[in-house]
Computed example of a mutant assay.
Amino acid sequence: MSTTAAPIPFTATARTGHDLETTLSSAWFRLITRVNAELVHATGDFYRARDVAPVLMPITVNSVSSPMGLGSDSLPVRIDLFGDPTYLADSMQFQLEFMLRMGLRGAYYIMPTFRGEDPDSTHLNQFFHSEAEITGGLDDVMRLVEDHVTTLCSRLLDSPAADDVAAFAGGLDHVVDIAGRTRFPEVTFEDACALVDPEHVEDRGSGVRAITRAGELQLIERFGGVVWLSRMPANSVPFYQAGGEDGTALCADLLLGLGEVAGCGERHTTRAATERAIVGHGVDPANYEWYLRMKELAPLRTAGFGLGLERFLAWVLRHDDIRDLHLMPRLKGVPTWM
């Protein structure tokens, strides 16, 4: 049954260690709970229909995928596990690649991801990552992401929560628009640099260039609400992204709502190509010996993506701060009651 008025967001800045009673009575968090449940159900149904298998992953890793080279702006979370230094998972992409060597056409999971940088309206220290890896290349995974996002939108429109989402978001026209598309527009990084204001293109040295969040928002508006930003400079993306002969990477970010909602890319197939990229990014190959050995023993062309559920949910609700979307917050420097 629909609520009579839009739920009021419980803002991140208002949360304290003593807000249990308010959280329990919040229509905002009840709505988020219902929408998240629909997204998870829809994700499972989507992949089952495409023979992409759910896989069970640990939450700790020895080889982090972020930071991973010259263009990284993310910090790993290091912990002591039974006396051994390790990291909380920033992504399980490497492990998904491993699972494809088990004979799967594709593999996916939804699980927490941990990052150490300071949180803000578009970054969380702990968020839910929906990641998948498939056999194939960049074009294959871009089509998979488009199909996945349009399917999620269609399921939300048919869900019992649709009226309540519309009440808060001021309508569902944006969801209807995406649900009705088959392909999203695409712009290369070089072309995008000429479309955004010059101050939104950053030169970070060592050949690393990036478009700022404000620049991403300009591109989203220019392309009618959603756009692929593709073929970034190879030095600006993780070492594990395969590259073209023109110095660009075989990768793309899906810009929607707050900015990047999903990032995808094709991986290096062989050990030699992966090792060259690692060295070129100034990363110690010894930290990734198992990954390199896997490529040596079982070379395989794969591609994958990661979608941040909170960022997607923020777009659905037309909300501007993903810190408001956690019932049980885990924010750096903010005490929690649970």
Rank of each mutant, 00 (worst) to 15 (best):
T3M: 12
A5E: 11
P7H: 08
P7S: 07
T11W: 11
H18R: 14
L31H: 03
I32V: 05
T33L: 04
V35G: 01
N36Q: 07
E38L: 06
F46S: 02
A53S: 05
S63V: 11
G69T: 00
F82L: 00
G83N: 08
T86G: 04
A89Y: 02
D90Q: 13
D90C: 11
Q93D: 10
R105T: 04
G106S: 13
S121T: 15
T122P: 02
T122H: 04
Q126F: 10
F127Q: 06
A132K: 00
T135M: 12
T135C: 13
G137A: 09
D140G: 07
R143N: 11
E146Q: 09
V149N: 00
L152Q: 15
L152C: 06
C153A: 14
C153D: 14
L157Y: 15
S159I: 04
A161R: 04
A161T: 13
A162C: 07
I178V: 12
I178W: 04
R183Q: 06
E190N: 12
V208W: 14
R209K: 15
I211P: 00
G215P: 04
V227C: 14
S236K: 04
F239D: 01
A242Y: 07
G244L: 08
G247W: 13
A252M: 06
D253C: 05
G259L: 06
V261L: 13
T274E: 09
T274A: 15
V279K: 01
G280Y: 01
G282K: 03
V283M: 13
E289P: 02
Y291P: 00
Y291Q: 05
K295P: 01
K295A: 14
A298E: 08
A298H: 11
G304M: 03
F305E: 02
F305N: 02
F312L: 14
H319C: 11
H319V: 01
L327H: 11
M328A: 10
R330Q: 08
K332H: 14
T336F: 10
